[in-house]
Design a protein around this nucleic acid. Structure first.
Length: 570
RNA sequence: GGCUUCGUAGUUCAAUUGGAUAGAAUAUCAGAUUUCGGCUCUGAGGGUUGCAGGUUCGAGUCCUGCCGAGGUCACCA
């Protein structure tokens, strides 16, 4: 493309193209020809360039892994509440966090994977209270229910009981009086009570009163409440661990909100001194109008902490723990303004890590039928989903009569790899910041732009490469009549390291996913068009086997960045 | 309402960051191959990139206005 040079050179676009092309052919050994069309300069690359490139890549055992750059990055992901099991939204979060971790590792960073478990607050007290009232001593062991699901059951129970209580209350005289006194114009009873729910919880509800009382006791370190809290949180965390294990993700460090929610005092003192923050009574606030936001409360008028104060303190603590240059928060896009506020305050406080903070905001996951709503029971449970995709992989393989001769445990493992591969790819191929539609049927498809298609291509080319141990004996330089399919493959592979950097800079696994798919597709075309084992010459055969080996390795590497495994057979 | 994200084949997603004829997949139809591995390949139809202006050699991409869908506007987390 020569348009940008027209002004500087004061020539017609076509002439510049001619001059440049001519110069490059004469002076670069890699360029063999050129032509100019509509102001675009096209160059032809000599075959020795391609074979050399392939040799270089083949000889590099760590292709796609940058040398350490000595920098640290912390990636926070998952970070669930301990009152209910994980769902599809968490899965998107977890896969994004994991994949970004892998990408940054490949880009040369030391990665610290963390999560902050939200294990306190009124929501947790709701589950606890419901269990106390209706649980009858039920445990994961006694009921056979996975711990997180058991606690989730009582969270739901609380809500159904609360709704019942609320609708009964609406019939009372007290409710009629509240309605008469507080209703807005044109607001009928139904609309009013729908909007009044939270106020009811705080002012009139028995369940609400008891849950809040429990939270107060928890904060006062009441031994009985704390013991119950510990017991139920243990159940939930055990359940989460099982789910993480299924998904194949790990963490280097867990932070607990119960330990961090009081942090931030030190930074607040600093902010008050430097007039970044202001105090009225016990309340501390700041003005964020410069980034289009309003006043933000950091400490409440009773002096207690807020979400903001807690995140300020946590950021500082984690910097003290690890001194990471970058910190990525994988959190849903509904919290964009919260993090803008937190990051802005830290910048004003001139904290050394403030510039390296990044909120990786992802969009909500919708179902084909609309959005997920826990109240309407349309939430897709994480454990159910994982079981379903594995079952689907098994079903479709057995229907085709494949893998039946395989050892049972190996077979089960292969189905797991395929099912999870399908699920992970389906979610990660979509740009993170976009809202996405999750179709359970399509997620387990095996054809087209899917995980199993890529896995299959990889299995295929490593199978080909395995056929010929002599690939390492260099012959490929003698092969000069390269086919377009071969050039396309080498070109694609040569872009891989730059692509990793690009994906890291954009915090976007979808870039890697698109690459893996393109490469798989190019290989399948190559495989179809050219019969490798019946190549026209030994040199061509050696070249193609070597190429297959390099494709296999690159595909496997790219899939690893997406958290996908490659089955031994498919 | 203010701020903000988004709107691309029937559907799900791309588009090298402002570049060539907007590409894949899926579904539909028509073919090929079936070798090292059966989930492979080729082709066809399908688009006024929400609408209307503007900026320039050139706009899906940038600017303005409208329409539509989210998010957010707590002394909740």
């Amino acid at each position: 493309m020569v348009f940008p040079y027209t002004k500087a050179a004061k020539k017609k676009p076509a002439d510049i193209g001619e001059d440049l092309g001519k110069y490059l052919v004469e002076n670069s050994p890699n360029i063999s020809a050129y032509n100019v069309i509509n102001g675009f300069l096209n160059l032809s690359v000599d075959s020795s360039y391609w074979t050399n490139l392939l040799e270089t890549v083949a000889g590099n055992d760590t292709y796609g892994q940058e040398a350490s750059n000595g920098k640290k990055i912390m990636i926070e992901y998952s970070s669930p509440n301990t009152n209910k099991p994980l769902h599809l939204g968490h899965i998107r979060n977890i896969l994004l966090g994991w994949s970004c971790s892998m990408i940054y590792q490949a880009a040369g960073y030391e990665v610290i994977k963390v999560q902050i478990v939200n294990d306190r607050g009124i929501a947790i007290c709701r589950s606890m209270l419901a269990w106390q009232l209706f649980g009858d001593g039920e445990t994961p062991e006694s009921s056979g229910i996975k711990g997180d699901h058991l606690v989730g059951k009582y969270y739901v129970k609380f809500n159904t009981e609360f709704v019942k209580e609320y609708s009964e209350w609406q019939q009372t005289n007290e409710a009629k009086e509240v309605y008469a006194a507080k209703k807005k114009e044109d607001q009928d009873e139904a609309a009013f009570f729908k909007a009044y729910k939270n106020d009811y919880f705080n002012e009139f509800s028995y369940l609400g009163r008891d849950a809040k009382a429990m939270l107060v006791k928890w904060e006062a370190n009441d031994p009985e409440v704390r013991a119950l809290w510990k017991k139920m949180n243990g159940w939930v965390l055990g359940g989460f661990d099982a789910t993480y294990d299924k998904l194949g993700v790990t963490f280097d460090k867990l932070y607990f909100e119960s330990d961090t929610y009081l942090l931030g005092k030190e930074l607040i003192e600093k902010g008050l001194k430097s007039k970044v923050l202001f105090k009225e009574g016990k309340r501390v606030w700041t003005d964020l109008s410069n980034i289009g936001m309003q006043k933000k409360t950091i400490l409440k008028s009773d002096g207690t902490s807020t979400y903001t104060s807690q995140d300020l303190g946590t950021a500082q603590m984690r910097y003290n723990d690890y001194q990471a240059e970058k910190v990525v928060y994988v959190v849903g896009d509904e919290q964009i303004s919260h993090f803008q506020g937190v990051f802005e305050i830290l910048k004003r406080l001139e904290e050394p890590y403030a510039e390296g903070l990044y909120h990786l905001a992802y969009g909500m996951v919708d179902l084909p039928t609309g959005r997920m709503k826990s109240r309407e029971g349309t939430v897709v449970d994480a454990d159910d989903l994982v079981a379903e995709v594995i079952a689907e992989a098994q079903k479709s393989a057995l229907e085709r009569g494949e893998l039946v001769d395989m050892d049972k445990t190996e077979q089960a493992n292969t189905f797991r790899q395929i099912g999870l591969g399908a699920l992970k790819y389906f979610i990660l191929k979509v740009n993170a910041r976009k809202r996405m539609v999750f179709n359970p049927q399509e997620s387990v498809e095996m054809q087209g732009n899917t995980g199993p298609y890529i896995q299959y291509a990889c299995v295929r080319c490593s199978g080909v490469a395995r056929k010929a141990p002599e690939v390492n004996m260099i012959l490929s330089a003698d092969y000069t009549a390269l086919q377009p399919q071969e050039k396309d493959l080498i070109l694609k592979i040569s872009q891989y390291p730059a692509l990793i950097q690009e994906a890291a800079a954009a915090y976007d696994p979808a870039i890697v996913a698109a690459f893996a798919y393109d490469l798989a597709k190019l290989y399948n075309k190559f495989y179809h068009d050219i019969n490798i084992l019946k190549s026209e010459s030994e040199a061509a055969k050696a070249f193609r086997l070597k190429l297959s080996g390099v494709v296999a390795r690159t595909l496997k590497n790219a899939m690893h960045l997406l958290g996908m495994e490659v089955p031994p057979r498919m």
